[in-house]
């Protein structure tokens, strides 16, 4: 009995793990990548548009705002987010998406995604960053 239960549990967990790998490989749903250490933290937020039209947003998280605060992005096109923390640790979570990143002092985080529906997406700081943490919000406007 114990052996059967053990095998069933292990088998089920193995199946779950394969499903996660499949989602990462086939659907591209993954955790943030590791940028090379040559990528230095930046202290000013900006939006770049590459020659091929691809949008790149460089967010700086600081006590207690994101820079830039409001960014317009095209619907359905890939967007690269880069994230740097100017002071303490922050979080960046784009509501209703998989964009969920930690802003860690000294390192640069990154994620690529698309917004498939037009609308206003609040960006929430979800890591405690001091007394006004609850006011740290920015917006992505997908058009």
């Amino acid at each position: 009995m114990e052996r059967i239960a053990l095998m069933l549990a292990s088998g089920l967990l193995g199946l779950f793990f394969l499903a996660l790998l499949a989602a990462a490989r086939l659907q591209g749903i993954n955790v943030p990548p590791c940028l090379p250490p040559e990528v230095k933290p930046f202290s000013e937020g900006r939006v770049d548009t590459l020659p091929d039209g691809r949008r790149q947003v460089f967010y700086v998280a600081r006590m207690w705002r994101f820079e830039p605060e409001v960014v317009e992005v095209p619907v359905g096109k890939p967007i690269d987010v880069f994230l740097s923390a100017a002071d303490v640790t922050h979080g960046l979570y784009v509501s209703w998406t998989n964009v969920n990143l930690m802003a860690i002092p000294g390192a640069v985080n990154a994620y690529t995604f698309r917004l498939e529906k037009p609308g206003v997406y609040p960006i929430i700081c979800h890591e405690y960053c001091g007394s006004a943490h609850q006011n740290m919000v920015a917006y992505l406007v997908a058009k």
């Binding site: 955790v31 990548p33 940028l35 969920n100 990143l101 930690m102 860690i104 390192a107 985080n109």
Partner: peptide, 9 residues
């Protein structure tokens, strides 16, 4: 630390 920078996947 899945959502943190600096670690290889």
């Amino acid at each position: 630390q899945y959502t943190e920078p600096g670690f290889e996947r």
